[in-house]
Simulated scan of single mutants.
Amino acid sequence: MRAAYDLIIIGGGVLGSFHAYHALKRGLHVLLVEKDKVPRGATTQNFGQVVPSGMNTKWQAYGRQSLQLYKEIQQEFDITVREEGSVYVASNEEEMQLIEELAKINKANDYTAVLRSKKECLQILPGLNESYVVGGLQFPQEVTVEPRTMIHRLHAYMVKILGLTIQYQTTIIHCESEAGNARVQCSRGQEYIAKKVIICNGNEFKSLYPTLFAKSDLEVSKLQMMQTYPQKAYTLPGSVLTGWSIRRYEAFSECPSYREIKNNEAKESLQQMWGVHILFKQAIDGSVILGDSHQYADASDIDDLGYELDMDIDRFMIEEAKKIITLPAYEIKHRWFGMYSQCKNGDIFQKTIDDTIHIVTGIGGKGMTGSAGFAKEHISKIFNV
């Protein structure tokens, strides 16, 4: 069975889905192929924070485009977007210095950022512990989504409104250039022809091009997260990012004081060993998602990260979270880990084969925030439009 498309996208996560979106908006005939019954990778195993504020200048530009797109789609179709803003909470003078410097950077970039005093932080963030906070930086335009719901609704929107064709539970076993086009073969025997193919999933990249994958600089990060039971009579607005986030996120690396402050950090702490930075986000049902940790391995050695949760890490994160925000209850209902790939020496992995097959993966933790903006530019480049 052969069908002709302008574009076949392999991988139905947020990166592949927004490539499909921008291709459809340009009037292209698009097939999106997803190996699972529903997307279940990094796109669904994260906080659902859309925070361009945490990115360096290049990726903030993509993230700001993404913000606008999320909001535009939400006006047409409910994909769970809530515009409640983000707040970075500084716990000491070093972190306060970094957020003051970031505020100046964002003023120059014409991206709204509001410095908050200790008193203002305590007013806008219920339960925030007075002994923790020195001040804060608020980005009122930023949004949250429900990651396990958003991607399914985005697919439904593109099928219903934009005419997307999706094949779930479809594994691609072969992909090659053929007479100026690209041909893909499925495990069920179907074959599809397209002018272009974009591979947006590390698993398919590994199975379809194992030699190229082995030579890549991809590494995998394992992140542990938790979700409380719904909190009674408690509302936490937007995303709350704390002192360790300030010391970790790429945006702050552009601050003049960043390098010196990082050099003064303790190197042997549990926080450093497990790559922990404490985040909070309240879900629609009133529960609070918190975490997370980061453990790394080369993509070829992903098994070294294990398939179980490390309860020592979870206990450490809960104890640290309690020092920051006092919730009505810290009883945990769900625990999970997510995996995402990233490049050791670049911001995203890209490779083109015979001008017809494009591999783009390894977007790392930038996926939920940066994919929509990046995909718009990438589709324009591939199709010269």
Rank of each mutant, 00 (worst) to 15 (best):
A233V: 01
V385L: 15
D110A: 07
K351C: 08
Q224N: 08
A179M: 13
I357F: 11
A90G: 00
E268D: 14
E254L: 06
P210M: 04
A299Q: 05
L98R: 11
Y307S: 13
S207E: 12
L7I: 09
R188E: 09
V30H: 08
T356E: 12
E176R: 15
S86W: 10
D314K: 06
F383S: 01
Q97G: 08
V145R: 07
A42D: 02
F47Y: 13
W59M: 03
T149Y: 05
L164Y: 05
Q97M: 15
L279Q: 14
I172M: 03
A113G: 04
M273Y: 11
Q167A: 10
V38P: 00
V50K: 06
Q190Y: 09
Q141D: 10
H19F: 12
G275F: 13
T144S: 15
Q231R: 07
A214H: 09
V145F: 06
G291R: 03
F139I: 00
R40E: 11
K333Y: 02
Y330I: 01
T144P: 00
V134N: 04
T43V: 05
V288K: 05
Y249C: 03
E76P: 00
A3D: 14
A233F: 07
I357W: 03
I8K: 02
S269H: 07
I10K: 09
G189M: 02
L305P: 11
S269V: 06
Q60R: 13
G127H: 07
T356F: 00
N345T: 15
R259A: 14
E254P: 08
I173P: 06
L212R: 11
N46K: 05
I79A: 08
I359F: 03
V50F: 08
L69R: 10
Y21F: 15
T80I: 08
